[in-house]
Design a binder for these strands. Structure first.
Length: 937
RNA sequence: CUAUGCUUGGUUCAGAUGGUUAGAACGACUGCCUGAUAAGCAGUAGGUCGUGGGUUCGAUUCCCACAGCAUUUUCCA
């Protein structure tokens, strides 16, 4: 048998089938860095319209997790796809550097500021710690294939940025949003310091539980509020009863809260103390009276909570009167349905107290002892004062009963000792005094939110939030660089100018420039009458004002941003802190659009946690499967919901990746030695099938570009993969194999297919680039023809030849599916193996007939059978089988002809040429003659 | 406890002013090919569209409740 293999044109390429991504991506990354690809893109896009995606700064602590990876990859996909749109898309990554978590890490290493080390040393250590964390995260982010200005990120701890944060605060002050107030915070008596919520842990604690009488000042007022006439008012003192586990908060009492919806009763009862009348929640009355040993009682009248608002009560041991107020936080779980309210000692109490304008009295000093001016209890430690307070209550006949209760109570995580709530002076941005809330709500309506429910979500949050407490009594942060009058506590009247002067100091030497500052330096002679505030800013302010400290201040970027993109938790975090400060400063949102993504969860939808053992580390994925697999997963997953990930899901992604990669490889292999400058066939000369695939490709590209624009990446993945599998693999590429392999290398028909594949490859590599960045770059290196150094410098491919066809193809494809099914029957019977062993006869009429006849003798190439003939529907023999298509009958048979060793078709003319007894006529023509001609497939 | 969102075959996604047998692809299974070969092609089997109500001639699609999950938030006097 003669070997005709040399006469074939088989695919050939150096592009490896296996990605080996984990091993090769780092090399490619290094090349990108060496060619400084990010800078080259900036040069290429200079002068183009800008698209600003502003990076939300991750916190500079710990290695990146999968959520970080998702976030950065989504950003990178958007930046790269918009760059393909022809826009100039700078990407400046940033880090959030100040704050408590870093302080904790540093405390573990060198001890607390002010204790073992001075504040300055401590801050230096924090700065150094943050720097190291950033370096680690920076490396990992780059490893993901994210392109950006990684050598020049923005850091909130850069001196210039620290100064600009102070300047932004100055602008908030200028706009009048900064106010001073009191707020209860967790306070550790052992630390003598406020605690952040993260520093509090709950443990069981034994506490006293007491029922205390608050006598009603005006009995007539009480009964007058009752509906209808109350004939029997009973006799004895009348009191509202409260239940509390913190007797020491009674000196701070400012009111008694009732639930507006509950029914309350006034009962007549009797004990050793004599006859008296008590006000209790109806549903708790029996159990409470039982507790007091007052089994016999009668209800005199009942009232609703709302009826009691404003009723004056006598404080149990002070001369003052306190009002009845209403609050939804009052429950029927325990107690009496009336809650003693001390705004200086509880968040609920504080909030409801704010509503009623109750004073925030805080009689407790830093050391946990009552202040000197506290009547009866001056100097006593709060917990030790409990028993004294109870004695006083007994003495004044205010105590009904004392028990103890075991309950969960907040403790200091360091000292394990119970903490208290204590009101302290703090700085706030007022939501309403200068219209901050109203302005923010308006601005929300002018932003495009993706998904759209984000708008409602942040609206509700802003609408209902309380004033923003921006002060922290901490060390590692940007100072609230203001002076207050020692007497009045008011801000210095020239604060705007002073803040700018402070900013200049900070710009020189960082935040220590403020902490080291002698007030006289800025205030001169009046320095003595003002106090330098040393509170620092909530870190949310640092990141919240990047629209000013970065977008406005950094020449690479611009204000406002086109897009902020973060996890959905940031509706309460960065999106809101950015919105409030931007509206506060210039009454405008800092972003035109906001996109949120869900959190990564495991295959069952459960959050990732060490205890569940379902954590997937991005570093590990990159080291095993490669960054492109991770990127493909991010793109394939609908980020609007939770994003499921597991080893199985990633394996599926790796499978899909291989298909995409191999499709590219096959295109490249068929373009072996193809020179687009000289070998492309003109649009008019191309074969019908090739024209069809180009039109399909151009149509798909439109869909892909639209999906990129709409941030619908998971659709892109689906379309792309479907295109590889169905359009190309299962149809086009399968059909053209015969033409590519057996026709003469330079024949028009073969060049036509190559022309199509060349255009496909050009478009395809660009579709891939935003997602499979490493792979796209690798493909780019193997593409034929002269081209720029990187696909990332490119725009979408627009050079598709203008072709037109009679589009009978959809119908042909349907028929082909039916033929495949019939062939499978024959194959199962063992009559044929390859489809080329078969001959097909079709019987149909109408449009089907027209479509099939159109392809004439070349229909068999579409079916990949040795022959395919079309007859009228009425001509069908009895053994033709009806297909699922109306009016289409199919008969397939095994060919009786000899197989051509070169093209594998079975033809009646195989062996007609004595010189080539194993070849069919077609192959003889292609090997020794002028070559065959094709028009359709 | 608050607010928001999600729930379609083993996996990832489509879908419809509500209307005939709910679509793909992957994976699985069964074969074919050996000229994309740790590839390629074909066929087959998988879903009562989270549960329960309601509206309707008819709901997976609209409404309500519930469950689970996620983010968020509050509280435990």
């Amino acid at each position: 048998m003669t070997d005709y293999k040399d006469t074939l044109s088989l695919p050939k390429t150096d592009f490896p089938m296996k990605g080996n991504l984990a091993r090769r991506e780092p090399d490619m990354l290094q090349r990108w860095q060496e060619q400084d690809i990010y800078a080259r893109i900036r040069q290429h896009r200079a002068g183009r319209k800008k698209y600003i995606l502003h990076d939300g700064p991750p916190y500079a602590n710990g290695d990146i997790h999968l959520g970080h990876a998702v976030n950065k990859i989504l950003k990178d996909i958007i930046v790269k796809s918009h760059s393909l749109d022809g826009l100039d898309c700078p990407y400046v990554p940033g880090w959030d550097c100040h704050g408590l978590p870093i302080e904790h890490q540093v405390e573990k290493k060198i001890g607390k500021a002010g204790a073992r080390v001075d504040a300055r040393t401590f801050r230096d250590a924090c700065r150094e710690y943050a720097r190291k964390q950033i370096a680690r995260q920076n490396t990992d982010f780059q490893r993901l294939g994210v392109l950006g200005d990684w050598d020049n990120p923005y850091l909130t701890m850069n001196y210039r940025t620290e100064a600009d944060i102070v300047r932004a605060l100055g602008r908030m002050i200028e706009a009048g949003h900064l106010v001073r107030g009191f707020k209860p915070v967790y306070w550790c008596l052992d630390c003598a310091s406020a605690l952040a919520e993260a520093e509090v842990e709950y443990q069981d604690k034994q506490s006293p539980a007491i029922d205390v009488c608050f006598p009603v000042v005006d009995e007539d007022d009480l009964f007058g509020r009752a509906p209808g006439q109350c004939e029997d008012r009973g006799e004895g003192p009348v009191s509202v009863v409260i239940w509390t586990t913190t007797p020491w908060t009674l000196p701070g009492n400012q009111g008694v809260a009732f639930n507006p919806e509950f029914e309350y009763v006034v009962v007549q009862c009797e004990s050793q103390r004599g006859r008296e009348r008590l006000v209790l929640a109806e549903k708790l009355a029996t159990s409470a009276l039982h507790r007091y040993g007052m089994e016999d009682y009668r209800v005199l009248t009942s009232l609703k909570g709302t009826d009691l608002e404003g009723l004056q009560l006598q404080h149990p041991f002070y001369a003052s009167h306190v009002p009845v107020i209403l609050g939804d936080h009052v429950t029927l779980e325990t107690g009496t349905g009336a809650v003693h309210t001390s705004p200086g000692h509880g968040v609920d109490d504080f909030n409801v107290g704010q509503k009623y304008g109750l004073p925030v009295s805080n009689p407790v000093a830093d050391n946990g002892c009552f202040r000197d001016d506290t009547e009866l209890f001056a100097g006593e430690h709060v917990f030790k004062a409990n028993s004294h307070i109870i004695e006083v209550l007994i003495d004044r006949m205010r105590l009904l009963v004392e028990t103890t209760v075991l309950h969960s109570y907040p403790h200091c995580w360091r000292h394990k000792s119970p903490v208290i709530f204590r009101a302290t002076p703090q700085w706030f941005f007022s939501m309403d005094s200068r219209g901050l809330r109203a302005g923010a709500l308006t601005a929300i309506g002018e932003v495009r939110w993706t998904p759209d429910w984000g708008s409602q979500r942040i609206y509700d949050m802003v609408n209902e939030r309380t004033d923003w407490c921006i002060s922290r009594q901490r060390t590692w942060g940007v100072p609230i660089a203001v002076f207050v009058d020692r007497q009045s506590g008011e801000l210095h009247p020239d604060s705007t100018r002073l803040t700018e002067l402070a900013a200049q100091k900070i710009e020189q030497s960082g935040i220590d420039g403020w902490f080291d500052l002698d007030p006289a330096e800025l205030l001169g002679e009046e320095g003595g009458s003002y106090e330098k505030v040393t509170d620092i800013l909530d870190v949310w302010f640092d990141s919240g004002v990047t629209h000013a400290t970065v977008l406005e201040a950094d020449g690479r970027l611009a204000f406002p941003a086109d897009l902020y993109l973060e996890g959905s938790d940031q509706h309460r975090g960065w999106f809101q802190s950015s919105l409030l400060t931007s509206v506060g400063i210039r009454n405008q949102a800092p972003y035109r659009g906001v996109l949120t993504h869900g959190f990564t969860v495991d295959a069952k939808g459960m959050k990732m946690s060490k205890s569940l053992g379902n954590v997937i580390a991005p570093q590990k994925v990159m080291q095993t499967l490669g960054a492109d697999i991770l990127r493909l997963w991010v793109s394939a997953t609908d980020y609007r919901n939770e994003m499921n990930v597991s080893d199985e899901i990633l394996k599926r992604m790796a499978d899909a990746y291989r298909r995409i990669r191999n499709t590219a490889r096959y295109l490249l292999a068929n373009l072996d030695r193809f020179d687009p400058d000289t070998d492309c066939v003109s649009a008019g000369d191309m074969l019908e099938l090739d024209k069809w695939v180009l039109l399909e490709t151009a149509r798909l590209q439109e869909e892909i570009i639209r999906a990129y624009g709409e941030f619908q990446f998971h659709l892109i993945y689906q379309k792309l993969h479907h295109y590889c599998v169905v359009t190309l693999g299962g149809f086009y590429l399968d059909i053209i194999k015969d033409r590519m392999y057996t026709l003469q290398r330079r024949s028009l028909a073969r060049r036509s297919a190559q022309t199509a594949m060349y255009h496909i490859a050009e478009a395809f590599v660009r579709w891939l680039a935003p997602v499979l960045s490493f792979t796209a770059d690798e493909i780019w290196q193997h593409m034929p023809g002269q081209r720029p150094e990187s696909v990332f410098l490119e725009e979408w491919y627009q050079e598709f030849p203008a072709v037109t066809i009679k589009d009978h193809w959809p119908r042909v494809i349907r028929v082909r599916e039916e033929v495949s099914r019939e062939l499978e029957c024959l194959r199962t019977e063992g009559a044929i193996g390859s489809s080329l062993d078969a001959e097909v006869q079709l019987y149909c009429s109408g449009a089907d007939r027209i479509a099939l006849d159109y392809l004439g003798d070349e229909l068999r190439f579409v079916f990949i059978t040795s022959s395919a003939d079309v007859y009228g529907e009425t001509e069908r023999p009895d053994d033709a089988r009806q297909s699922e298509l109306d009016g289409l009958w199919i008969k397939v048979t095994a060919s009786a002809h000899a197989k051509c060793v070169r093209c594998w078709h079975r033809c009646e003319d195989t062996g007609v040429d004595p010189a080539h007894p194993e070849l069919c006529g077609r192959c003889v023509l292609n090997v020794t003659g002028a070559g065959e001609t094709r028009h359709f497939a």
